[in-house]
Design a protein around this nucleic acid. Structure first.
Lengths: 211, 211
DNA sequence: TCAATAGTGTCTCTGAGACATTATTGG
DNA sequence: CCAATAATGTCTCAGAGACACTATTGA
């Protein structure tokens, strides 16, 4: 009988913050060695027979303190298999993404860092974030679950621009993003406008997911 | 201590056959229960500390009888986590692709089936093949390791057309594929022509990977 | 010369990208 | 009116797709 590898699930927990107008990554200090006190992605060991999404839910509720009801979507990214990635011994890490509904978040104990400015992380988590970021950018506007999870049921053009800039690293022209969004299945522009910004300016249009 | 899930690696073993002008998938009958005698993807349990590629190598050498030297490239696809996928108990399956150099294959005991006509397989392997096939098609001409692994160091325009048709399901126009290939980094057209076909016809150009 | 195969020129259509211009708000 | 913000019209360019036509082989 082959002795089996341990499997951990590490989560890229993402939240769009309308105030800072950026996508934030949830990290938390590690409670135990190795790397006690260092920041890390929320992760857990996969239980026997446990599904990946359930493990991801355990990770974000347990490590970040986010209520399970706030999880809006989740999905798989890729697997990291370097045997030395955990000093305790060889452990597979399956990376998942997970998005939250900003309105249902309360009392979490996570540190939320802009994707452009993630602090140094424990294990090989810097590498995980680096390798997975392009995959996340690629999902935006192409994976409806991911996009809707990040932006919510309704959102404005301005927010769409902010999220796109956060993930891809540069801000699209509004006219171009508008056309991209027109072609996203299930997404429709409403006739409504959001409230104007505090600094004034024309109120942005509201977009909505058709159910 | 959480009891950990078993991890298996299941391989989509791919080979381009110039005679049938198609991409073939390697499968083998299972030796033991469950599903003894039924066809299945080559797979092994991942050993502790073993890398995914090494497990894939064990799977194709052990189950298909392909010499390790014939492996031209390998890579990750996705993970299947349904707890009931193996009747023996919950097992994660990480799907990998693997390509072979046709010239170094000898004495393998695999059944090679065209991708369009894969026989019914054990476990959830039909689903694995179905879910992964679009990912394979997507890799062609975009992942140089995959493309070179499948087509070899040198290949003709005609073979490029055949491989593309096998993976995507329809045959591109030669002019269009030519332009696609011109833009693949590391790929160059040589001035040489291959030997003419048995049925006659203009001999195709040879393409080569710049090292 | 013909059938079979391969290579190439070129037209169209779509989508990404880049602006310039217009519209709507608060101060 | 002005600054700030958002929406839209439109031009260009690159790439996918679709053919038509030309080229090179064996029989």
């Amino acid at each position: 009988m082959i002795e089996s590898t341990l499997v951990s699930v590490d989560v890229l927990a993402l939240r769009f913050d309308p105030h800072s107008r950026a996508v934030l990554l949830g990290v938390a200090p590690r409670a135990f060695d190795p790397f006690a006190g260092a920041m890390a992605l929320p992760g857990v060991l996969l239980g026997k027979g446990e599904r990946l999404r359930d493990a991801a839910r355990r990770a974000v509720t347990g490590k970040l303190g986010v209520p399970a009801a706030a999880i809006s979507a989740a999905g798989q990214l890729t697997t990291f298999d370097e045997p030395s990635r955990d000093p305790r011994g060889p452990t597979l890490s399956i990376a998942l993404w997970c998005t939250f509904d900003a309105s249902r978040m309360d009392g979490d104990r996570a540190t939320w860092a802009p994707l452009d400015d993630v602090p140094p992380l424990a294990f090989d988590h810097d590498r995980i974030v680096g390798d997975c970021r392009p995959m996340l950018a690629d999902r935006l506007w192409r994976d409806p679950a991911f996009t809707a999870g990040l932006l919510g049921e309704e959102f404005t053009t301005a927010q769409a621009l902010d999220v796109t800039e956060s993930l891809t690293g540069d801000r699209p022209y509004p006219a171009n993003l508008s056309r991209t969004m027109e072609r996203v299945p299930g997404l429709e522009r409403t006739a409504r406008h959001a409230a104007a910004q505090p600094k004034g300016g024309r109120p942005p249009l509201v977009w909505r997911w058709r159910r």
